[in-house]
Design a protein around this nucleic acid. Structure first.
Lengths: 337, 337
DNA sequence: TTGTAAGCGTTATCAC
DNA sequence: GTGATAACGCTTACAA
């Protein structure tokens, strides 16, 4: 009963180990009869495959590696959950690795590849520069999740992302259409984070298009994606005396920190200042006021990322760069002026 | 240069594979000369041991398994992050497995043990019944995190937890001391979750001690640990017409859902109803109003859990059951009556 | 459709 | 001190 092997299965079912292995791996060229008999033996013996032996033979760990950049952004939390639940449907174990928002995700992935020998990699959040200088050391399929990698010259790299620039522009457009002309932006680090840079550019696009006065020095503050950083950045923006009537945060977590900072300065949302977030966290609809936000299709992003990765891994499919839709939700944290 | 094996090392150094293996594992009975020569060969060849082969031979995978029960409770998210960062300091890979709040975590762990052959297990959230009936199948060290396992008769089981009953009682005491007499409770499932049951009992303890009228049928609603469930439960409690002036939620995520539900019924927090949470999520201090809560020492819980587990694994240390401190924080979501 | 047998890279038990 | 060599449990040619 304990620790049955495929040899036991072979004995129990009356077939050879090769046939047993075929059944276990859902391979063709096995009679229905054999399949049934062997599956029954599996049941009876409580057989569990020995991953170590399998991996030794296959020269790989059979696992999928996920590198998550930045631990305080809830958005990645829900992305990881979705990825986990997709991967759970397969037989691949998931290795999750969290690194700091400012660390080099590619170098980290390179190291983990040597160490863990995964069959594929998912990288959540990334910086083009890091890819340019080090990604050539990675030879297995990789999907960059939530960042666009279509400009990167690697044939084993795919990406699934939201069009950050356009989405940020839409958010700003919405604020402007509501009558706001003085808008502050709490964004990401434009150097370390592509996401931060693109969303910032989306803001500029919108301002330019609408002839809005935007002073990068005074109206923008680029920080990390966390509650606390959103809070701090907002405090700094308030000190610049630009009397903004709206604030766009490049992540819901920042928006939440921002709302608290505004409140602490005696301002109410949305009466004094409208706040717009980005990500569409489930949490946002339970806040008071409900957070206006740009919703990323987290679920879709996770599903497609895993699909593409496994396709590249299994069928040697070709890598692709996809974009998932976003949706602007005007809720209670924004108001007309 | 690529993929050297100990055979290559043997050839390169002029020794046999057995001696190479001894050197690699720092075993005695090897001459200094041999050790030096072989280490040099390791350098030159860029040798990396093949973990899969090693594990196959040793019948274990060197990894630490974490089973997380319930995916929508942010509290576990931050616990997992802390555990990850602790384990990252060691050489053990971490395998994280998420299961539904209502699934049997022990059976799941048993299966994963057979499959992945980890050296130790961390289980986040648990149900005594499940342990009683199936834990005897687990032979390796295990730490139950955030639940008390001191009544469980297994010598390979440790636990690190908050005293849920006492902590919940403190929260209720605080509300009562503020003048509240009619208090509703949004709790966890008393059957599937020990945590749910203990926090509920803590509430009863407090009510009993203060001579408070508590009607389990009408003043309590036990659901899952999520925003939405907290919301729904609160709506149901409101329909019972008990006109409560305070609400205690057995988790911050539920409290957040509760606050939204109250708001949607035209009630404000804390003016009409005071809300007390449980967990001490970082998020809570950025909400408006800041959430009053019982803070669990998440960081300490993670650190001790990992320490105890590794101690049991490595030094064959003996298992223990520890409690970490909690702290009651009265913030803005509660008020005197 | 099925079985036999040769590895995968280690560790460990023997002899020497 | 050291070196053959037999496992560990699996996948996969190659034969049948």
């Amino acid at each position: 009963m304990e620790a049955a092997t495929i040899k036991d299965l072979a004995k129990l079912s009356g077939y050879g180990v090769a046939t047993v292995s075929r059944v276990l791996n859902n391979q063709p060229n096995v009679s229905e009869k054999a399949r049934k008999k062997i599956m029954k033996a599996v049941e009876e013996s409580g057989f569990e495959i020995n991953d170590n032996a399998k991996r030794l033979k296959q020269q790989s760990s059979n696992s999928v590696l996920v590198v998550v950049k930045g631990t305080s952004n809830e958005m990645f939390g829900s992305l990881v959950e979705n990825i986990q639940s997709e991967i759970a449907k397969t037989e691949y174990p998931l290795l999750v690795d969290y690194i700091d928002e400012d660390d080099n995700e590619v170098l980290r992935a390179v190291r983990l590849c040597r160490e863990k020998k995964p069959i594929g990699i998912l990288i959540l959040g990334g910086n083009t520069g890091h890819f340019l200088s080090d990604f050539d050391k990675i030879k297995i399929p990789c999907v960059l999740v939530s960042n666009d990698g279509s400009n990167l010259p690697f044939k084993n790299l795919s990406s699934v992302s939201t069009d950050d620039r356009k989405a940020a522009k839409c958010a700003m457009d919405t604020l402007i259409e509501m009558g706001h002309r003085r808008i502050a932006v709490v964004g990401g680090d434009r150097e370390h984070s592509d996401t931060g840079r693109l969303r910032f550019e989306g803001c500029l696009d919108s301002c330019r298009e609408h002839g809005i006065d935007f002073d990068v020095e005074k109206d923008f503050c680029g920080v990390r994606f966390s509650y606390q950083d959103g809070y701090d950045a907002t405090c700094r923006l308030l000190e610049n005396n630009r009397n903004f009537t709206a604030l766009f945060a490049a992540a819901d977590v920042m928006a939440i920190g921002a709302i608290r900072a505004l409140k602490d300065h005696g301002l109410s949302v949305p009466e004094d200042v409208s706040v717009f977030g980005f990500d569409g966290l489930a949490l946002g609809s339970f806040l008071v006021p409900k957070l206006s936000t740009v919703e990323q299709s987290v679920r879709k992003m996770a599903v497609r990322s895993v699909e593409i990765l496994l396709d590249c891994v299994k069928k040697k499919g070709t890598s692709r760069h996809e974009t998932v839709p976003f949706a602007v939700h005007q809720k209670e944290s924004t108001g007309k002026i």
